[in-house]
C-alpha cells in the first residue's frame, strides 16, 4: 500500500526552558490526502499551532527539540537538511497565519512581499513575478489588483489583508496549505468570504488543507476529518460527521456544550468545562484532562490519575484517548444533551 500524501507519525515538539521541559506537542500522528481538509481544534496552548509549524520546519534554528516523522509526498521532512527544507517551504507547503496585519511586513509593498515568495522558488524576472502577483491578487478577489499591488499592508482592510496572505501562500501552487486560525481576527461576514475562498481554491488546485482553529463551527463547515488536541496531545480523531454527531470523550463533549450555538435552546445553561488548561511543564502522569473531567468518577480505580490513556480506535477511523467505557460514554452523551 502506498504511503498517505501526508503522514505525521509520533511527532513531538519540546522546548527546553529554565523552568524545565515544555512538552508543547507529544506523540501526535495523523494522515491527510490531497484535496482533503483536516481540522485541528484546541484551545490556546494545546499544541495545534506548534505541531503544524513543525511541518514547515519553522522550529529549525530555535532551541526546540522536534522528533518523530513527517512523511510528505514521499519524503520525511524532518530528515531533510535545512537548505532542502527551505526549498520546499513556501513552494510545496505554505502557511497562512492568524493576524494578517502583524504577519505582513509594515514597511514593504504587498506586491513586493508576494512576488518575493515567487522569486524565492522560480528563476524568473521581477516583471514576470509582478505579473504573476497581480494575477494572484485578482484570483483571491482583490479589486483593482494592478493598482493595489503597490499599496502597503496598512492600506488594506482586515479581510483584504487575509486575501493578500492567501495570495502569497498560493502563488507557488503548494500541494499542502496550513491555515492557522485564518479567520479568528475577522468579522463573521468576512470570515464566511474567506472560508468560501479557501474551499474554492482548494478544489481548483487539489490542495491538501490543514485548518487550525478553536471554532468547532468552522471545522464543521469545511473539514473532512477532525483532530481534537488537548495539552499537546490528540485526544480524539475521526471523520467530522462521526466526531460531531458521536463525540466520544469528555473534553470534546465539553467543547461542544460550551459553545452558544445560534440554534441551540437558550433555556439550557451553557455547560462550561470547569477549571483551566494544565501547564505544559511537569505534566502529571495520567490523563491531562483528569483535573477538569467530570466523568473520571465513572472509571474504576485511579487509572485516570495514574495512567495516560492510549489513542485507541472506537470504530473505523474514529479514535479517542480516554479510559471511559464506551457504552457509558454513549449514555453520557444522551444525558448531557450533546448532539
Amino acid at each position: 500500500m502506498s504511503r498517505p500524501f501526508l503522514s505525521v507519525a509520533n511527532l513531538a515538539v519540546h522546548f527546553p526552558t529554565s523552568d524545565g521541559l515544555v512538552r508543547a506537542t507529544d506523540g501526535l500522528s495523523y494522515t491527510l490526502e490531497r484535496g482533503k481538509t483536516l481540522g485541528i481544534v484546541g484551545e490556546s496552548g494545546s499544541g495545534k499551532s506548534v505541531s503544524s509549524s513543525a511541518i514547515l520546519g519553522l522550529h529549525r534554528g530555535t532551541n526546540a527539540q522536534v522528533s518523530g516523522e513527517i512523511w510528505f509526498d514521499g519524503t520525511d521532512l524532518l530528515s531533510l537538511s535545512d537548505e532542502d527544507m527551505r526549498r520546499r517551504r513556501g513552494k510545496d507547503v505554505a502557511m497562512i497565519f492568524q493576524d494578517p496585519l502583524s504577519a505582513l511586513h509594515p514597511y514593504y509593498r504587498v506586491g513586493d512581499q508576494i512576488s518575493e515568495a515567487y522569486l524565492a522558488h522560480n528563476q524568473v524576472s521581477k516583471r514576470v513575478a509582478r505579473a504573476r502577483t497581480i494575477e494572484m491578487l485578482d484570483r483571491v478577489g482583490i479589486p483593482q489588483p494592478d493598482r493595489r499591488v503597490d499599496d502597503y499592508p496598512h492600506q488594506f482592510s482586515g479581510g483584504m489583508r487575509q486575501r493578500v496572505m492567501i495570495a502569497m501562500a498560493l502563488i507557488n501552487d503548494p500541494i499542502l496549505l496550513i491555515a492557522d486560525e485564518p479567520t479568528t481576527a475577522l468579522d463573521v461576514t468576512v470570515q464566511a468570504q474567506i472560508l468560501d475562498l479557501l474551499q474554492e481554491l482548494q478544489r481548483e488546485f487539489n490542495t491538501a488543507l490543514i485548518m487550525i482553529t478553536h471554532d468547532l463551527g468552522v471545522i464543521a463547515e469545511i473539514a473532512d476529518d477532525v483532530l481534537v488536541m488537548y495539552a499537546g496531545r490528540a485526544v480524539e480523531y475521526g471523520a467530522t460527521r462521526d466526531l460531531m454527531t458521536q463525540p466520544a470523550m469528555p473534553y470534546t463533549w465539553g467543547l461542544i456544550q460550551s459553545i452558544p450555538d445560534v440554534t441551540r435552546s437558550v433555556d439550557l445553561p451553557l455547560r462550561p468545562i470547569p477549571g483551566n488548561p494544565p501547564s505544559l511543564l511537569n505534566q502529571p502522569p495520567g490523563c491531562a484532562f483528569f483535573a477538569r473531567c467530570e466523568y473520571a468518577q465513572f472509571v474504576p480505580g485511579d487509572r485516570c490519575a495514574t495512567t495516560l490513556p492510549d489513542l485507541l480506535p472506537l470504530s473505523d477511523g474514529h479514535l479517542k484517548r480516554c479510559h471511559l467505557d464506551h457504552d457509558l460514554a454513549s449514555y453520557a452523551v444522551v444525558e448531557t444533551g450533546a448532539i
Binding site: 470570515q191 463547515e221 450555538d261 445560534v262 440554534t263
Partner: peptide
Amino acid sequence: SAVPNIEQAVL
C-alpha cells in the same frame, strides 16, 4: 447566515 453552525453543517 455567515455564522458557522455545527448542527447544520454536519446534519
